[in-house]
Write a protein that binds this DNA or RNA. Structure first.
Lengths: 215, 215
DNA sequence: TGCGAATGAATGATCGATCATTTTGGAATG
DNA sequence: CATTCCAAAATGATCGATCATTCATTCGCA
């Protein structure tokens, strides 16, 4: 859970600025070409810094991948609470959470695919930190589901499995973009998916609320 | 759809034997360590052949990855019809197909993860062949769903989306093995998943058939 | 002037691919 | 049946290229 990446430069603002410069370039390149094929030279060029500078803020290439994956997963985790702000009604919150998660996956398809591709390229200890981050995001969705159950809008479903169903549904938009893109819009995907998945989950009352929400 | 990989040796039986020897070793190594980290030397050693021999049956390392992915996807495609043999009742067939797909993913978790990780490492033309293979497998599941609809066991659902839901559900067992393994058995996973996913899909009659199936 | 930050040429290790050489198996010969 | 011979198959040392990482040097600011 706790991680520090060694830096030869001490000034925190500088670390912040340089690292995000490096991460930005690396996300683009890793996303397009993959981690192993991308060279430190490529990253340096795209970030408009020297090769040596990268090694002042990071101790090896794996550090860059780790920073990249942390940033990707955290940005996903940030997206959900942001979309929930101000929404009170539980079913509404649930739908907003699903839509938000699909939306972040849509905006950064390559980053999502990258997380699937390259998490295994980290050493175990770091891989676990990444998994932990994913679990934290999943908890946000699980909480929405729990709330719907408590409010009598969902039947008492298998929360764990239903959460993963939602997560996979969202990831699928990115993982199978080659299939879905062009076939339907993200909005269509979300609504058609929700309709399909909620069918057996909604209580009678939940169904009424959902119908109202659709319009 | 059509692919030939150059071989310096002409004898078909020899090509068959040597290639499957190479592929077997490569699946294990790519699965455990990843494509880029595995060297041709590693593959040669594990397959118990010389480096040079590999280049007699394949023209470069990417050929090996391609052969590996083709083999993985084909083995998955073979698994479904095999499990359906002799089963007539449509809902039974559908459940058997889901279970079969989950089972192949369970037996070769690393291969499934590998397909997600490394398909992008192929050049576009070959990547498309792999996607095509996945589509062919999906069609087998879609057909089961269609049959259930025709038989009045499923409501007229969104077949495309429902198919992908099933596919992602099966892949999730492998992709999220670190979460599910130990928490439940594959059988539990399949039944809990089917119960969750079929809820809104089954017609009244379908529900009766499903209940009977469970016992 | 001094010091931390930045640079990029140089280093050394690694790896894919090649190819000169050896081994193998079986056809031809006596 | 033993021997010779040869083409195909197999080998692995070697080559050339690439890449992560280092470090001697320069830069820029206080």
């Amino acid at each position: 859970m706790n991680f520090k990446i060694k830096s030869r430069v001490e000034v925190p603002e500088l670390i912040e600025r340089r690292r995000s410069q490096i991460i930005k370039a690396a996300i683009e390149l890793f996303g397009k070409r993959g981690y192993h094929v991308t060279t430190i030279r490529d990253i340096a060029k795209r970030a408009d810094v020297s090769i040596g500078l990268i090694y002042q803020y990071v101790s090896d290439k794996e550090d860059v991948l780790f920073l990249v994956l942390i940033e990707v997963l955290e940005s996903y985790k940030r997206g959900i609470p942001a979309a929930l702000k101000g929404i009170e009604e539980p079913l509404d919150r649930f739908c907003a959470a699903v839509r938000a998660y699909c939306t972040v996956n849509d905006e950064k398809v390559e980053a999502t695919v990258l997380a699937y591709r390259e998490t295994k390229s980290l050493r175990k200890e770091r891989r676990n930190i990444i998994k932990q981050k994913e679990i934290e995001t999943n908890r946000l969705i699980a909480a929405c589901i729990q709330d719907c159950i408590r409010a009598g809008l969902f039947e008492k479903v298998d929360v764990e499995l239903f959460t993963y169903q939602i997560v996979m549904f969202s990831h699928a938009w990115a993982l199978k973009a080659w299939h879905f893109r062009g076939r339907m819009s993200l909005d269509q995907y979300v609504w058609r998916g929700l309709t399909l998945m909620l069918g057996p989950v909604l209580t009678a009352r939940g169904a009424r609320v959902f119908k109202a929400l659709k319009s």
